[in-house]
Amino acid sequence: MTKKTQKKHEESSPPAPLALLGAAWLVPGLGHLILGKRIRAGVFFGVIAAGFLTGILLSGEVGVPSVDNPFSWLSTLACAGNGVLYIIRLIWVNGLGGLLSNLPLGLEGGGDPVAAGFGYGKTFLITAGLMNLLAVLDVSDIARGAKS
């Protein structure tokens, strides 16, 4: 297939199903697993989960939106990319009741700002989330036939 015909094929192909993209976001690697890419799924899950756990163990804070700090919205978007890992961490820190009653602007992100690893931890959490968002885009490309 030439580049021109491949581009035409991509443009005419329907978008990837939202349920597939949602699954890919919720559990890192699940989208690739559904599409039959077992090795890639395992590697992505391992890498993203390891990055997220490292961030938590370093006392990093997951991003939560704050009115005072516009940049917090960016770190929230990045950390929310971790899917279910992000949700579990928010429940762990806020409790299920606290999570539901304090949405969206009263949440705690956990972590220890005085800890030596606080900044590094946050970097790992953000990196893991962004990697999962890229994995979701990869799932979309594979589902549309733009990539094998």
Partner: peptide, 12 residues
């Protein structure tokens, strides 16, 4: 950190 990111992009 470099290891995790490098593995991810190698497979992506």
């Amino acid at each position: 950190h470099a290891f995790l990111v490098a593995v991810f992009f190698a497979f992506l």
